[in-house]
């Protein structure tokens, strides 16, 4: 039996009005690994990431062609329930976006929406995921406070816990450390490495060193084109494409 990765992108094209942002991108994302999407800014990294959980849908003038298969189901198939697709993925954005509610309610948001959970069980769930995100010890006495009072680094880990609480299979990170100080960044990176045991992780970054630190698999985008992808060690050691080489040596950034 062929083992199919549960996230696979096939011939994906994305247009903003007339502009073609992604050009015929195809890639299988390996399970239980950290895949890092790198490339110069404005090359479509974030667009690729957002196309994976259909966050491009609400934008005006966006057109998506091609297929994104999650567990062999095309998420752009009109019969696919978009909330189910998104539930399978947790998102970490560039700046942490705590919802306008308490720390507790942020984590409980997903479980409350998706299924009735009784109060006691919900409390356990919240604790479990806050622990997983390495935040529990810092916030356990102030769960009722507005999430906006946490430091930015804490907020990002809260967002991680919030995403995990929905029970996803995949974690998407859109430059998740770009707003954080070095120490918080390190903290988040460590969490991601821990989490790949259970989840498939995809991270967009423009920091080459970060990619080298955490990546198992690399995808290099250049002007909307997927130029090169493969296991990180291989790609960093012997980049095949001249553009990839130029990027690695810092000639283009």
């Amino acid at each position: 039996m062929e083992i199919r990765p549960h996230l696979s992108v096939q011939n994906l094209n994305v247009y903003f009005d007339q502009l073609r942002i992604l050009k015929d991108v195809s890639i299988d994302i390996p399970d239980h690994k950290i895949t890092v999407i790198i490339g110069p800014s404005g090359c479509g990294k974030t667009t690729l990431l957002k196309s994976l959980n259909r966050l491009l849908d609400p934008l005006d003038g966006v057109r998506v062609e091609g297929r994104v298969l999650v567990d062999n189901v095309d998420i752009y198939d009109p019969r696919t329930e978009v909330t189910e697709v998104r539930k399978k993925m947790g998102l970490l954005s560039q700046r942490p976006q705590p919802l306008p509610m308490s720390i507790y309610d942020n984590v409980a948001y997903g479980p409350r929406i998706h299924n009735h959970v009784d109060k006691k069980r919900l409390g356990e769930v919240v604790e479990q995921y806050l622990r997983m995100a390495g935040l529990w010890e810092e916030v356990k006495d102030r769960l009722g406070e507005p999430a906006s009072r946490l430091s930015v680094g804490q907020q990002q880990r809260l967002c991680l816990a919030r995403g995990l609480a929905v029970g996803p299979e995949i974690i998407l990170g859109d430059e998740p450390t770009s707003a954080l100080d070095p120490q918080s960044s390190q903290n988040v990176e460590r969490r991601l490495i821990e989490l790949k045991e259970e989840y498939t992780v995809i991270v967009v970054t423009h920091i080459l060193r970060q990619a080298k630190r955490i990546a198992d698999y690399i995808a290099f985008l250049y002007l909307g084109e997927l130029v090169e992808h493969g296991p990180a060690a291989e790609v960093f050691a012997n980049p095949r494409d001249p553009r990839m080489r130029a990027y690695l040596t810092g000639e283009i950034s």
Partner: peptide, 18 residues
């Protein structure tokens, strides 16, 4: 209200109205 905040809610599987 930042668009990213809506994205955060949507990415958790909330419907638009939620």
């Amino acid at each position: 209200i930042p668009y990213q905040m809506r994205e955060a809610s949507l990415s958790l599987g909330a419907t638009k109205w939620e």
